[in-house]
Simulated scan of single mutants.
Amino acid sequence: MARTLEVATAQYPIDTFASFAEFESKATRWVQDAVNHGSQLLVLPEYGSMELASLLPDAVRDDLHAQLGALQPMRDDVTAIWQRLAQRHGVTLLAPSMPWQLADSSYVNRAWLFTPTGADYQDKQIMTRFESGPWGISPGQDLKLFDTPAGRLGVLICYDSEFPLLARALVEAGAEILLVPSCTDTDAGYHRMRWCAQARAIEQQVAVIHSPTVGEALWSPAVDINIGRAAVYTPCDHGFPPNGVLALASDSTPGWQFARLDLEAIGELRHSGQVNNHGDWSLQHERLERTVKRLSLK
């Protein structure tokens, strides 16, 4: 397992395609570009696969609910492309998530993680108002820990990263890096993602990799506006940037952000860092219990 890791995180635009082959060409170019920079772990965003809705008839594409079912016949071909690319280049790759229909006909937001030798997925845990309301996306299966050539990984899809206990569960299970794919349509949404991703890196003393969708796709009722900045965050401690920002895009231009992660150095912070957030996590529980008890007596 590599202890120094080259990572690439995408600012990924929602494009339109005239054919499925055009999508495959895009995926191939993007992965090749990251590989050309020596990247071993590639992270792509939440709902990036919604660009495939551009291949649907206008009436279906414009219908929030109709597009969900119409995308399902493509899903196996989509995952096969990302799997082949991961195998061909020997990389670990988090593919853009997409709505995925389950046996009970419900839909989850599923992100597939591919390695040179296998594949697994993470479903989003907590739905936004738009997902659970107008769009009809449901919470999926439990969080997983992925043991990969790039390290032990956890995936918190967008809104999930705003809940510290989910991150804590993954880190307690052994996650060294948290992957945060996102899709946000306002500056406020992007900044929620940014600050929460950074908070998780500080709280848990791990690296956090954030990949957003960017740009406009006004033809899409689901992902029409996309605002974000790809980034890699670390603890704010010895040997790392004082602001915890190892990489951050300066503007919204589509492309990769690259960084080198020293996983051994990050892990060492838990023993010799200026602070011990990870180890001191349990101390808050006793103080919370005492505070709640004291305040409830008033």
Rank of each mutant, 00 (worst) to 15 (best):
A2I: 07
A2K: 10
T4L: 09
V7N: 10
P13G: 01
I14M: 07
A18M: 02
A21Y: 00
E22V: 05
F23H: 13
E24T: 06
K26D: 00
R29T: 01
Q32L: 11
D33G: 07
S39E: 08
Q40S: 11
L41C: 07
L42I: 09
P45G: 07
P45Q: 06
E46L: 09
Y47K: 12
Y47C: 11
G48Y: 09
S49C: 03
A53K: 02
L56V: 01
D58I: 03
D58N: 06
A59I: 05
R61T: 03
D62G: 04
L64S: 03
L71Y: 04
Q72Y: 10
P73G: 06
M74V: 01
D76V: 13
W82G: 07
Q83A: 07
A86W: 14
V91Y: 07
P96R: 15
M98Q: 14
M98K: 12
P99G: 03
Q101C: 08
V108H: 04
N109S: 06
A111N: 05
P116W: 07
Y121H: 15
E131N: 09
S132T: 14
G133D: 08
G133R: 05
S138T: 08
K144S: 07
K144N: 12
L153T: 11
Y159G: 10
Y159E: 13
F163W: 14
P164L: 13
R168G: 04
A169K: 15
V171C: 11
E172Y: 15
E176G: 14
L178C: 15
L178E: 10
S182C: 12
C183I: 06
H191S: 06
H191P: 02
Q198A: 03
A199N: 11
Q204F: 01
Q205Y: 09
I209F: 04
P212N: 11
T213L: 13
V214F: 08
N226Y: 13
A230E: 02
A230F: 04
Y233E: 07
T234R: 08
H238Y: 14
G239A: 00
G244R: 04
A247K: 01
L248Y: 13
A249H: 02
S252M: 08
Q257W: 04
F258W: 07
A259L: 02
L269K: 14
H271E: 14
W281Y: 15
S282Q: 15
L283E: 11
H285E: 13
T291Q: 11
R294H: 02
R294W: 03
